[in-house]
Simulated scan of single mutants.
Amino acid sequence: MIRYVLAALLTVAVIALSLPAIQSVAGVASERGFAGDVAAIDDAAVSLLESEEPTPDGVPAPRRTVTLSFPADSLTTAPIAHLRIERIDETGSLASYAADGRAERQHPIDAPIVHADPTANETVELGGVGERRTLALTLQRDGDGDPVVVATD
């Protein structure tokens, strides 16, 4: 009987000691998967800038869509706390994201990306736990007449 009690206590102790490692691996796995989604945003935005031209008013703007998978909280994945894409200058943006409890990661994007209104220069902010979200990217002109990628959710 004592063996069973010791075996149960030892099992509980091993599980308790391994939980931080499991959570860390879950965060890394989520960040790796989400890094692919951020790279897809970069590819689609650069493709718009390199292969399309902004259209006149009344004509549909060139468009690309990217599906983002925000992981759910589970034993093997950690939720992504946020995705933020901020235009840093006329030629680029910076995407920032983080899994819960982990340091923020940054990914430079070689295209100016703004949220919803091409003249407002607003930051794109997305989040969601266990959701798939579609980000539509269109090529438009900003207030200065320069091409800019406009992101809408």
Rank of each mutant, 00 (worst) to 15 (best):
A44T: 01
L139I: 09
D89V: 05
A26K: 05
L19I: 15
T11V: 09
A78G: 06
I80W: 04
G58V: 08
E125N: 12
V149Y: 04
A151L: 02
V5R: 06
V114G: 00
H82I: 01
R105W: 12
D73P: 01
S18Q: 08
A39L: 13
I88L: 10
V28P: 00
D142V: 10
S51R: 10
A78C: 00
E90G: 04
I113E: 03
E125D: 09
P79T: 06
E104F: 06
A13V: 10
L49Y: 11
A116F: 10
D144K: 12
T76G: 04
V46S: 07
R102H: 15
I85L: 04
H107M: 14
T67P: 02
V12Y: 00
L48M: 05
T55S: 13
P60D: 14
D57S: 11
A78E: 14
V59W: 02
T119N: 14
G143Q: 06
D153G: 10
G92V: 01
S74H: 12
L17I: 14
R63Y: 05
V66A: 04
S51Q: 12
A98M: 06
L17P: 00
R105E: 14
L83W: 07
E50P: 00
A99K: 06
G145I: 10
A16H: 08
S93Y: 05
R87V: 01
R63L: 05
M1P: 03
N121D: 15
R141P: 03
V150Q: 01
R102K: 15
T67Q: 09
E53Y: 10
V28K: 07
V129S: 14
A45G: 07
V59L: 11
L9G: 13
T134Y: 03
D153E: 12
P56M: 13
E50N: 15
I15V: 14
A40E: 15
L17V: 10
S47F: 12
V149C: 04
P56A: 13
